[in-house]
């Protein structure tokens, strides 16, 4: 699927931006390590890409021949949202609302939601077909 590389790139940037913006606002942070922010992009790439490839990409492949992208999105996205939200919420509670946990899980949730939209983005001809239908 052509959307994969661009989705992974956008997701990495989104996750990194949200995560560090939340964390850097914390006044108790002892120092604001620029190098750490730069180097953190590598684990963020690995983590966000693997989660997207494992948990979202399969939905683009299954029923590929019978379902349009829109059908797949409408069918699976709501349940995925519910499960992800519950996992992120309970994980944040389990870490007693620690700022790192809030930054990590909120960036993960928002990134995954956007990743669905980007991953299932239709091509122009698919939009036209859908409009014709």
């Amino acid at each position: 699927m052509n959307n994969v590389p661009i989705t992974l790139l956008k997701s990495t940037l989104t996750a990194g931006t949200i995560f560090w913006f939340i964390l850097l606002q914390e006044e108790n942070l002892l120092y604001r390590p620029l190098m750490l922010i730069v180097f953190s992009i590598f684990p963020i790439i690995v983590l966000s890409s693997s989660i997207i490839m494992i948990s979202i990409y399969p939905f683009t492949v299954i029923n590929n021949n019978t379902f349009t992208k829109r059908d797949s999105f409408k069918k699976y996205f709501p349940y995925y949202t519910l499960v992800t939200f519950v996992i992120c919420l309970f994980s944040t509670i389990a870490f007693q609302f620690d700022v790192f946990a809030i930054a990590f899980f909120s960036s993960a949730f928002i990134t995954l939601m956007f990743a669905w939209v980007w991953m299932f983005k239709p091509k122009k001809n698919e939009i036209q077909q859908n409009t014709d239908l």
Binding site: R70, F73, F77, P78, T81, L82, F85, F109, M113, F114, W116, V117, F120, K121, P122, I127, N130, T131
Partner: peptide, 23 residues
């Protein structure tokens, strides 16, 4: 309850996706 939780956290993204198809 299920629709309420989904709407509260996921409706925005679903709307965003629908915009691709909305002239």
């Amino acid at each position: 309850w299920i629709n309420g939780i989904y709407s509260s956290v996921g409706s925005y993204f679903s709307n965003l996706y629908d915009n691709y198809y909305s002239e």
